[in-house]
Amino acid sequence: MSQITLAICRHAPYGNALAREGLEAVLAAAAMDQTPDVLFTGDGIFQLLPDQAAGEIDQKSLHRNLQALPMFGVEQIYVCQRSLEERAVSSNRLAIAGINLVLVQDTGGLISRYQHVLSF
């Protein structure tokens, strides 16, 4: 199956609605059998941190949306290695059941493989 769309998630959860609304858009596209590939980069990698307790600020956990991804056919996500390093986040800490994390160094090369990019 060839994907034509890459969704780039580069906003942190909770502080910016685009994080949640981006994942919702990914899930909606996947539900229509147009599953995009997904790249987490910049502050978007903070969406992947474990142990988020969004209830403390009366928000819904974004992790539920992430955990729903495999049910909609998203079984791997790309993660920008440089963004992790800049933020001192070890990829070992990031784990979402049923999803294979693929670390990417050449994000430009990745982007160039797609017809469309949706930025969130």
Binding site: I4, L18, A29, M32, Q34, H116, L118, S119
Partner: peptide, 23 residues
Amino acid sequence: GGLGQLADATAHSDRIVTFGGSA
């Protein structure tokens, strides 16, 4: 319309251009 309309737009367009916020 639902988010499906966004997916539908990507399927039926040659180009998608995004106009992003200031946050």
